[in-house]
């Protein structure tokens, strides 16, 4: 890194772990997670806030990782895809939403998937039994070139039903 790059120290809790580090002031949150913390599950697809691949949860709500500076996350709690299996791991080491994605073939190349999982995680926390329209509205903030979205909708609804059945 260039010696002229302005740096700032931040303290951010990511997936339950507190990180204190110096970060370039201009670096966005997605790049910080990927390159500084090596949490490469969060992907970067457009860097202008449309594709949604970099979506993570900041203090519990979804946000574009490319539209937030890492320094803005100082003092915040961040959740990424790497956290999803940890809370309620299933047979393949997957959480319930991840398992529903596998069951319903809701991913193909898998590049956009981590961001979508985070948005749907937020939705299902707020609304445990969303209807198809609610799922499609949340998904409209994501681009996926492979799946045509239909199986993602089905997976989200399946995960909601599974949760309701608990």
């Amino acid at each position: 890194m260039s010696s002229e790059e302005p740096l700032r120290e931040i303290a951010v809790t990511v997936n339950g772990t507190l990180h204190r580090c110096e970060v370039a002031e201009r670096k966005n949150l997605a790049d910080f997670l990927r390159h500084d913390l090596r949490l490469t599950g969060t992907h970067v697809g457009c860097e202008h806030g449309v594709c949604g691949a970099c979506t993570v949860l900041v203090d519990g709500v979804s946000a574009r990782g490319c539209l937030m500076l890492a320094v803005q996350a100082d003092g915040c709690t961040v959740e990424t895809v790497e956290s999803l299996a940890a809370s309620e791991p299933g047979p393949a080491g997957l959480g319930p939403l991840q398992q529903a994605f596998r069951d319903r073939h809701a991913l193909q190349c898998g590049f956009c998937t981590p961001g979508i999982l985070m948005s749907l995680t937020e939705l299902l926390r707020d609304d445990p039994s969303p209807d198809e329209e609610a799922v499609r509205l949340v998904l409209s903030g994501h681009l996926c070139r492979c799946t045509g979205y239909q199986n993602i909708v089905a997976a989200a609804l399946q995960a909601a039903r599974a949760r309701a059945g608990d």
Partner: peptide, 11 residues
């Protein structure tokens, strides 16, 4: 799927 869903894909 499992690796991709856990964020362990290697793009």
């Amino acid at each position: 799927d499992p690796a991709l869903l856990r964020g362990e894909g290697r793009f």
